[in-house]
Design a protein around this nucleic acid. Structure first.
Lengths: 240, 240
DNA sequence: ACAACACTTCGTTGGAGATCGAAGTATGAA
DNA sequence: TTCATACTTCGATCTCCAACGAAGTGTTGT
């Protein structure tokens, strides 16, 4: 039983890796890595293959639980199945980058500083926000330790509500409320789940950050710089 | 420049994924995931291919910096290039396991509890040891924050030396002294690097844990249970 | 009802790469 | 020296799967 389950697990793992390791599929996945959903036609364009070929690729990605699809009228919206997929993608790219580009010192600065991971904020900005939220006791590891899930404290709920985040609404969402999402480049956690998504949405709405076209990079605006300092005590130095 | 580097990075990442996503190569990598080195012939056996085929696979893995080889006489010892490779392997297997086996609730218990990751202790045991070492102020994040690297405190050096770990020797080793190695199953860090390896070696020597044949699982012995409690304050309950 | 669009399914083709055996190099052992 | 072992390189198959176009299903708009 031990060996056979091991075999099966290795098999499934290998299949996942193979699914990622094909140019057209990889392009699609990287395109979805910012957490936004795209139609099949949009993915046809980034994959640079015919619609029929793209369709085959997408159904394979779906079969392997790497993407999830929601049908809306005559459009099919594809998105990553979970933030974990984005994390693994990032892990692989760290491995890929280490060989020759150690000189370049990790990711490009604008990507290190702030970027989206799935639908929340990652990079040094994301990690800093996570750390401040923890330090200020706005969020705390949930009762069941070791599973990386967070709860919002009473103090945190008050403060976040004041910022315009409806904590109660978030709690009733079907997805995990908040969890520590591992960031490969930083080797630290940032806030994922419904709360993480709400924070990114807030930051985009208030124009604290803006998405860079066709990239996961986030630009922190001048007002955003002030806002992160005022609300969270996160000071984005010019360093790095 | 932005787009082109993005493309190149995606290309490299995709190549890594493809390298893992081939049955024979995946079997080799999983075999090496416990951090021990094996000869090419041993890997021929686990890959279940001819020597010539295995040779081609190994040179590809080497070209992609997934494994490193050290030639010793007429033997070639292959080992994973870094703990990061093992981590990515684990990340992929978490993705693979999530689809159908959510019912089985993550990894098998004996793997969750204690296992080797590369050459250090992972699983709940590894995470607990990491947390206790931090809580007792034996290790602390190094001056350059956010890079996941740890230093040993004076207090920690004394205590670890008393346990038979030669801290000074570890410091002169070419590899990183200690860092937080991300554990996908636990979503928490355990101690990696030279210190992590030394801890596993110590635990094996003193028979606190024993390796399970052909698996990364570690069996905690009765005396190990007592030792982890006495030396580190890690109490391995019967729970889970 | 009909046309335009968004995708998928099917059947065929083509090419990359996994495989092997045979032959070659290097090390160690008798 | 000679044989055996450990591993690689080379050249030739062969298998798998990505690719496409053509035809199908389903949805929206007019």
């Amino acid at each position: 039983m031990n060996v056979s389950t091991n075999m099966a697990a290795e098999d499934a793992t290998l299949t996942i890796a193979a699914a990622i390791g094909e140019p057209a599929r990889a392009r699609m996945l990287f395109c979805l890595a910012d957490g936004r959903a795209r139609t099949a036609t949009e993915l046809v364009l980034v994959a640079e293959v015919s619609p029929s070929t793209a369709s085959a690729h997408l159904s394979r990605l779906k079969a392997n639980d790497l993407v999830r699809v929601v049908i809306q009228g005559k459009h099919r919206y594809y998105r990553l199945e979970s933030p974990d997929v984005a994390s693994v993608l990032e892990g692989l790219s760290v491995l890929a980058g280490r060989g020759r580009a150690t000189v370049a010192s990790g990711a490009p600065d604008h990507l290190r500083a702030a970027r989206s991971c799935y639908d929340h904020i990652a990079g040094t900005l994301g990690v800093s926000v996570h750390d401040r939220l923890t330090a200020m006791d706005w969020i705390a590891p949930s009762s069941r330790a070791n599973d990386g899930v967070y709860d919002v404290t009473a103090k945190g709920a008050k403060a976040l509500n004041a910022l315009g985040i409806d904590i109660d609404a978030l709690r009733t969402a079907r997805r995990r409320f908040a969890f520590g999402c591992l960031d490969w480049t930083e080797r630290r956690a940032h806030v994922g789940g419904a709360l993480g998504a709400a924070l990114l949405t807030l930051a985009l709405e208030r124009k604290w950050v803006s998405r860079e076209h066709g990239s996961r990079a986030l630009q922190v605006t001048a007002s955003g710089r002030r806002a992160f300092a005022a609300h969270f005590g996160v000071h984005l130095g010019v360093r790095l």
